[in-house]
């Protein structure tokens, strides 16, 4: 089965939407409410397309691809509607990009850029929107909220923590925690999936505010250092300051982008001033800083001495469930090949 998009023929699997087929083949259709993890939403209407033989426009995220369908994504009519949608969204909030954390990775900004919108075309007076800074890790800036509902789906369908919902009606509608409690007093567990999926700067990671523009940060992919799930992360690193500024989940197995409060927000410990930074030897009941050579010579000498006197069985070693495979292999090989016993274990049993 195939569908024609902007004059090009693409095969598709039954059940795919026009948006999915287009994205799969590199045809750009903006979408603010749709996200692959959440599925069709049909709320923001920015993904409208024109279908041959059909009156009116269709939202690509909810439109099932049909065999022989002919779709256009950039006709004057489509662009006019898109421009109107983006204009209305921009007019309805305070979308000031200057100091916005999302600047450079904002999907609304991208859409405005693609449509050539420099400033909102309308002035809309709505009820004042508040910023909820109460929680430890997440800021909800409702001035920038475009009511796309991604965060609500993220919270209820993806991580199923069931905290966020839409409160009030009409003009007054807004994203709320539980029964409209401040986030800090709600059942929110600060997993941050809402901030990861927010297309604009309305839900952001509090600790990253002002710590670095996306363009100045280096991305490093790694594995979370906490529980045994092994979530895949991207560290956003300020190389000059030698610090991690922010963590996001990678949309791959095993976690598909999802994280918990520790994985997403427990990243500063390597830079802590409390780190051990010098080898030390106990001398007269006190730890004294020594050079690496002195520490190593002393330790090797003592091992040699004690083993010579008592046999190798008196040596035991602990690897750890918190260090890398390479370090665990290293301690196991050291114990077996240097000390020549098998007294190596780790905290798996305790």
């Amino acid at each position: 089965m195939s569908v024609t998009i902007d004059g090009k023929l693409f095969d598709f699997k039954p059940g795919a939407t026009v948006l999915e087929v287009a994205r799969e083949h590199g045809v750009k259709i903006p979408s603010l409410c749709y996200h692959p993890k959440i599925g069709p939403a049909g709320r923001c209407r920015i993904c409208v397309v024109e279908v041959e033989g059909q009156k009116g426009l269709e939202t690509a995220c909810t439109l099932a691809a049909r065999d022989g369908m002919v779709v256009s994504t950039d006709t004057p009519k489509v662009l006019e509607v898109r421009r109107m949608v983006v204009n209305l969204l921009l007019s309805n909030g305070e979308h000031n990009c200057l100091s916005c954390e999302q600047n450079g990775q904002c999907e609304l900004q991208d859409a405005a850029y693609q449509l050539g919108i420099e400033a909102p075309a309308f002035v809309v007076d709505g009820p004042p929107a508040e910023v909820d800074k109460s929680s430890e890790m997440i800021v909800i800036d409702r001035r920038k909220c475009i009511m796309c509902g991604r965060c609500i789906d993220a919270c209820n369908k993806v991580v199923v923590n069931e905290v966020l919902g839409m409160g009030e009606r009409g003009h007054e509608s807004r994203v709320v925690c539980d029964t409209d409690r401040p986030m800090a007093d709600s059942t929110c567990v600060q997993c941050g999936e809402c901030s990861q999926l927010c297309p604009v700067g309305a839900i952001i990671d509090k600790k990253a505010i002002g710590k670095g523009r996306v363009s100045n940060l280096t991305k490093v992919n790694t594995t979370c250092p906490y529980c045994g799930v092994g979530c895949q992360l991207t560290l956003h690193v300020d190389k000059d300051a030698n610090r991690i500024v922010k963590v996001t989940g990678r949309e791959v197995l095993p976690n598909n982008g999802m994280l918990c409060v520790k994985g997403r927000y427990g990243y500063e410990f390597p830079s802590s001033p409390k780190r051990l930074t010098q080898p030390m030897i106990m001398k007269n009941g006190k730890h004294e800083p020594v050079s690496w050579d002195e520490a190593l010579d002393y330790t090797a000498g003592r091992i040699k001495e004690i083993v010579a006197k008592n046999g190798s069985d008196v040596f035991s070693a602990f690897g750890s469930g918190r260090i890398t495979n390479e370090n665990n292999y290293a301690i196991a090989k050291f114990t077996r090949a240097v000390i020549k016993n098998n007294n190596v274990d780790h905290c798996a049993r305790t």
């Binding site: 979370c224 469930g321 918190r322 301690i331």
Partner: peptide, 15 residues
């Protein structure tokens, strides 16, 4: 498993 690499520590022969 409770820790980030407790599986790996076993796999690597820290046993």
């Amino acid at each position: 498993r409770g820790q980030n690499n407790v599986q790996g520590a076993c796999d690597m022969g820290a046993l």
